[in-house]
Write a protein that binds this DNA or RNA. Sequence first.
DNA 1: GTCCGGACTGGAAGCGCTTCCAGTCTGGCT
DNA 2: AGCCAGACTGGAAGCGCTTCCAGTCCGGAC
Lengths: 337, 337
Amino acid sequence: MTDDPTPRRPTLDEVAERAGVSRTAASRVLNNAPNVSRAKREAVLSAISELGYVPNPTARALATQQAGAVALIISGEDPAVLADPFYGQVIAGASTVLEETDLHLVLCLATSARGQVRVRQLLRARAVDGVMLMSLRGDDPLTSLALAAGVPAVFGGKPLHCEVPYYVDVDNVLGARQATEHLISRGRTRIATLTGPLDTEVGQARRRGYLEAMTLAGLPYRAEEGGDFTERGGVAAMEALLARHPDLDAVFAANDNMAAGALRVLHRAGRAVPAEVAVAGFDGLTVSENTEPPLTTVHQPIRNLGREMTRMLLALIAGERPSPLILPTTLVQRDST
Amino acid sequence: MTDDPTPRRPTLDEVAERAGVSRTAASRVLNNAPNVSRAKREAVLSAISELGYVPNPTARALATQQAGAVALIISGEDPAVLADPFYGQVIAGASTVLEETDLHLVLCLATSARGQVRVRQLLRARAVDGVMLMSLRGDDPLTSLALAAGVPAVFGGKPLHCEVPYYVDVDNVLGARQATEHLISRGRTRIATLTGPLDTEVGQARRRGYLEAMTLAGLPYRAEEGGDFTERGGVAAMEALLARHPDLDAVFAANDNMAAGALRVLHRAGRAVPAEVAVAGFDGLTVSENTEPPLTTVHQPIRNLGREMTRMLLALIAGERPSPLILPTTLVQRDST
DNA sequence: GTCCGGACTGGAAGCGCTTCCAGTCTGGCT
DNA sequence: AGCCAGACTGGAAGCGCTTCCAGTCCGGAC
């Protein structure tokens, strides 16, 4: 732990001098560009290791005009959004892809007023080479901001009421339809739904899938209650639903958290699951394995979502023009149906 | 959407020229440094807004030798660590503090071999102004790496077998003791524990707290099984525990996830909770509210942990020498005890 | 009227790297 | 022997900002 007060780090100039070559040549071997003789290349290489040289990323960024980082911007009402393990998966997926590049991941929570301002600055200052945006409400100013910033941007989930060129989404409509059709195939006819927030695309889409399935099956029953994707919200919504439609025999909840809440309400109300009421969720997070009974759910490949968003962003940065991507979902059947 | 192909952004030189001052003066008003006459300051300010000038963070970073970012490094066996909402809370806490500064948060998952390498590079290249490290195993090479890198570093949770100068931790020993003593106060005497991984400080500490309480109360009963902080691990451990110690009348689980697993095992085994077996957990995440029955647990201020780590890091970066911090825990009593 | 401290000012030297470009040196052909 | 493409080479000009420092200018003290 003998720290020199100023252990000034060697620069490329010093490497070049020590290797007896020009700085240009040294830079070339660093970026292994052509036109460096074998001898010089080796001289530079050994100078680098003798000096323990590490290139200064900031200087490189300034010279190349590339920040060397991309941002994941998470919008939402309050910082608690991150309590949802959903984002952890997205981040993990993004990380695995970024690991293979030399880009870093900067995480921005646009959940407070101050956070919004900082995101705006980030965008305007072009402090990153690209951004991924998640969970934008329909009217989120971030959407147009990102689009206008001139920075490569990919959206996770299509923003409501807003055409964006690049996004990765999960097939929410089809997934919800699968779940509902599954309930129908179990002989249920009075199927209600606990929707997500209807000012989000995902909330809308899952509701649409439910309606499609009901319509296609010719089932006239309709019962819905709005939730907010939290377990607490699921409890409230399920209580309301049960009060208004005591005759329901199945529930499709727009996500697992709400389904978990619904299960608790049904339990308290003495309705047997799945005997009297069947319940299906959406997400396939661990929470769905641990409910009582374990939850039938529509699994969405969240990790993969993060991965694909990142890949798309990389493509965009590389100057390509990738097409939007819709990821498939799969029904996971457990004991609640 | 009329994008000029190269909408070159204005530089400080252009601002200065337009305002009729030197670049130096312009820079001064940017950093609102003294020694700029009121007139010039205003000229610069209006030039800035007319031009829509935004300073280039990279150039500034190069000139000031400050990266303008700090990293949160999360270690662990596999990327799934992020599935734990724990980190979401830490991140949220860190964000709220960083929002007030002009630092960004870069997130590094040192969960794969490749990830480790990249963290190493990050550290060596001094690509950030400081780092926060979390969930390091005892022998994690990252610990010494970070210490040696000469970058301000604060640890979240004291690494096992390793003295580090700056860390924020939760009072795991006391918390575990509180939980165990609570079980004792409920008249339990045959209290078992589901420990966390014993190669982590937190796993050790919570076990120690359990033992302290048992010893202090003069209870000779000892029964423990090792888990890995996951619900699945909790299930396995609880099954083993029950097989080996069928007479237990309470369980202290080292975290909520494992406690949730334990509850399910007990339920399947027909042991009534809390009547026959009382269960207490540790963490206070939402999962503890949603078990059946709701879980008595030791709440740790995770968000606050993230906040305090960040504050400590900022202090460190500012040249101060903060003292380690131990955050208190509180017992949250619910229906499982 | 002279002197001096303090408020301003801007030229210029970096920060550490990339890259254009003009030039040098080969060896292979004719 | 004379030429030329192609492989190297390194000087120098940036990238956009901060900051040292040598000055200039002013009003008040003497």
